[in-house]
Design a protein around this nucleic acid. Sequence first.
DNA 1: ACACAATCTGCAACCATTGTTAGAAATAAA
DNA 2: TTTATTTCTAACAATGGTTGCAGATTGTGT
Lengths: 140, 140
Amino acid sequence: MRTPAELTERFRAQGLKITPQRVAVFDALHDNPTHPTAESVHSAVVARMPTVSLRTVYQTLNDLAEMGEISRLEVGTGSARFDPNVEERHHHLVCESCGMVRDLHVEVAPELGDDVPEGFEVVGAELVVRGRCRSCADKD
Amino acid sequence: MRTPAELTERFRAQGLKITPQRVAVFDALHDNPTHPTAESVHSAVVARMPTVSLRTVYQTLNDLAEMGEISRLEVGTGSARFDPNVEERHHHLVCESCGMVRDLHVEVAPELGDDVPEGFEVVGAELVVRGRCRSCADKD
DNA sequence: ACACAATCTGCAACCATTGTTAGAAATAAA
DNA sequence: TTTATTTCTAACAATGGTTGCAGATTGTGT
């Protein structure tokens, strides 16, 4: 992910204003490998700026996603996850027990050709590998 | 997918009762390649049994999913989709414009080994390929 | 046919997310 | 720096999908 400072530039370039709330979200995401939900980003932000609303966090995450600076994941755990790592193409590993999401660096069948219908414009492909992580598997 | 008659057997085997509502859901799913939402299953069912509630449809779909007779898909289109085809291993193609979901018969990187952490029990892997279907691409 | 347990319906509650709006704050212009 | 303009924020309400609940209803084994 870009640094908070770089994101600030990108926002300015789009004519968006730089507010402390937005910077706090940038900081919360920077080098964060946990694929946080909006809620957990909000918690992190609130720890330092108690008045920031969840609405603002959603707004900023949406802006970032629209600019392609982060990506939104739907892994079936109820709420969306946000992934600051958009530079490396990668996929995800999900623990069905604790909800943990982890990056997975795997090449996925690049020759889709066969079964994709004529005229379908492929934009992207996401692989989700599900299972139980070690600590959950050990628990019972 | 199993025939409605077979599902009836499976339900009985689990000690679940056979009600006309449940049979109507079985029928609505049988050989249905559209990956319907609960809402659309409900519409189909209501066409023949006007009093069936959406709640009952959800209940039956959940039962079927728990028994492994159908699978629940979350492709990020707002509502869950249900796929009666659990016999053939396959993946999905999603049109981001109209929400269409289609089966995709592609082999996906079977040697995950590399990046899966030690001790993680892999249960399954789902690939979602996103893009625009021909008719949506033609529209604009 | 009976009795009991399981099921159905209708409605309320829930959760994640988005719409709205008045007031506050950041930038641009002077 | 002061003002003017435009954008943001916070709070709250509303939405959409899904599940919880209570009482009436209906399969099923006897």
